[in-house]
Simulated assay, not measured.
Amino acid sequence: MRRIRILHVAQAAGGVDRYIRMLLKYLDKDKFENILVCSQAFHKEDYEGLVSCFEQIEMTREIGKNDICAIKKVRKLIKKYVPDIVYAHSSKAGALARIADIGIKNYCIYNPHGWAFNMRCSDKKRKMYIVIEKIAALFCDKIICISDAEKESGLKICSEDKLHVIFNGVDIEAYEKSVHGKIKRDDLGIPDNAFVVGMVGRISSQKAPDVFIQMAKLVKLEISNAYFVIVGNGKQENEIRKYAKKNGLSDRLYITGWVDNPMNYVELFDVACLLSRWEGFGLVLPEYMMAGKPIVASRVDAIPSIIEDGENGLLVEVDDAAGASKAVLQIHKNNELREKLIVHGLQDVYDKFNVRRVAAEHGELFEKEIKRRI
């Protein structure tokens, strides 16, 4: 039988890039052919062996005149490759691809990877995002939600029958086969006996690096050998460094900048944090679990569906630096709690968050909908 041809459209890199790569790696290659149309933020070499065609066009995160040109180019590529399914990833690519696909006979799927209207923004902007999503929802057949919390939010823009939940997952097999310990604490100027608290994520408002560094200040008052690592880059980096310098943390804070394999740094952590202000899923949480790290995370959106407070991690309120510091100190002082969180986290990542399950559920959806159309 002819393989089902899927044309993926993606603008945002980062977590979306990692998600697509993991998905394509485990989708059955005998059943599915994959084509990627992406922005300039993606790298062709990352998709060798995963896609039959790799196309890059200029797509920007901001709404602007360039969008018209991007829509025309995406539409031209849809007509060129004649896919059975157009799969749009994230808000911007989701809007561009669905507009570009209007009137073309294929099956259209959209995955927001976190609703834009759940971001911390003005009421005016939030209402605008909801209106855009409501209109765009008319031009796709199915919307994939990466958590139950995402589905609940999705009811604001479309009926329940259009929403389909496929929980995120991580590539456990790749991590187990990888070489561990590539990065040493000494490489970062951190003593071997230090207590390291870290986070992975963009240095931007969503991931609350300001709360992380405020928490770091409080933790350092109690733990003399505490060090802190932020894996990522972003617009707020200078702000974070200024705060660290002002509060005597400069020699205790290491910011990696953009890295290809954040897990190399996660392995150095004694406690792993995700203190987000909003979060569609939080893929880094099962990654922390996979590395055997106890977690402190914010109680927001999808995070409580992944982290059960006191079982596989500790939950704190959003913007609560003091609460986050208390949770970190609790893990530092209580070895029994620490081991419990690690063991339960490892069990959960194997039972619930394997990317093979994500790929299998996608494959089932693709085949079901294509057969229904025949």
Rank of each mutant, 00 (worst) to 15 (best):
N264R: 11
D192W: 06
V131N: 11
N233K: 06
A360T: 02
K245E: 14
F42R: 00
Y129W: 04
A360I: 03
C38V: 05
E152Y: 00
E48D: 13
C38P: 12
R21G: 13
M289H: 06
I370S: 02
V328G: 08
E239H: 15
E308L: 14
E48Y: 01
I166S: 12
L275S: 05
Q330D: 00
S250P: 07
R21Y: 00
C145Q: 04
V355F: 07
L285Y: 05
C69M: 09
H344R: 12
D309N: 15
K235P: 03
G189V: 11
K371M: 10
I20S: 08
H164E: 11
L268I: 03
M119E: 15
I20R: 01
G94I: 09
N261I: 09
R202C: 01
V316P: 04
G313C: 05
F195S: 14
L188F: 09
I71P: 02
A360W: 12
N261V: 11
G103A: 03
E287F: 00
N233W: 14
K65C: 05
A93L: 13
K92W: 03
R120G: 06
L96N: 09
E33T: 10
R373C: 12
V51F: 10
C53T: 11
I370A: 02
S298F: 00
V328S: 08
K182P: 11
S305E: 09
D67W: 04
R299E: 03
R356K: 15
G280Q: 07
L249V: 07
Y19D: 07
I342R: 07
W115V: 03
K162Y: 00
E48P: 03
F54C: 05
V219Y: 08
N261C: 11
A324Y: 10
I104C: 02
I307G: 05
L275K: 09
P112Q: 02
V349M: 08
V16S: 10
I374P: 05
D67V: 08
E308A: 14
N193L: 10
K177T: 11
E150D: 14
I190D: 07
K184A: 14
A174C: 08
E364V: 10
A100P: 01
I6Y: 13
G49A: 02
D46I: 11
N312T: 07
P294R: 15
I132A: 15
V131F: 15
K333R: 15
I143L: 04
D192V: 13
E367I: 15
M59D: 01
S298E: 04
E336T: 10
I57A: 12
S325L: 09
V51G: 08
Y47I: 03
D210N: 12
